[in-house]
């Protein structure tokens, strides 16, 4: 499949994860979110940006447990918990937020 942003076609795999990480932009992230039925809020972007930073630093998308812990450390315990993250990304914070962030599926995610 593919996404159309600003007249450009962005290639994605059959699950909607983009093929080239360098293709990502914020409008693309918002479009992917929309295709997932999500309206992005500042709280959504906070998690998505956190994931992108984590990927830049470690070259992996973190597992959900690691993501929760790391977010708690950076953004506080009221955000570093499963409920908060699942409320934002009902189909799984790691999986869904990674897709919106233009990252591969988290390692260990089936």
């Amino acid at each position: 499949m593919a996404y159309e942003v600003d007249g450009k076609t962005i290639a994605a795999d059959e699950e909607g994860y983009i093929v080239n990480l360098a293709d990502w932009s914020e409008p693309l992230g918002a479009l992917i979110a929309k295709s997932e039925g999500l309206e992005m809020t500042p709280n959504h972007w906070e998690v998505v940006n956190f994931l992108r930073e984590y990927y830049n630093e470690f070259q992996i998308a973190p597992a959900i447990r690691v993501l929760t812990k790391a977010i708690g450390k950076k953004l506080g315990p009221d955000k570093g918990n499963n409920k908060y993250l699942y409320d934002l990304f009902p189909y799984g914070p790691a999986k869904q937020a990674c897709k919106i962030a233009g990252l591969p599926k988290p390692t260990g995610c089936i």
Partner: peptide, 14 residues
């Protein structure tokens, strides 16, 4: 090839 050296630094998080 992708450099996976930085990923060893994530092990601590795991």
């Amino acid at each position: 090839m992708k450099n996976f050296s930085p990923t060893y630094r994530a092990l601590d998080d795991y």
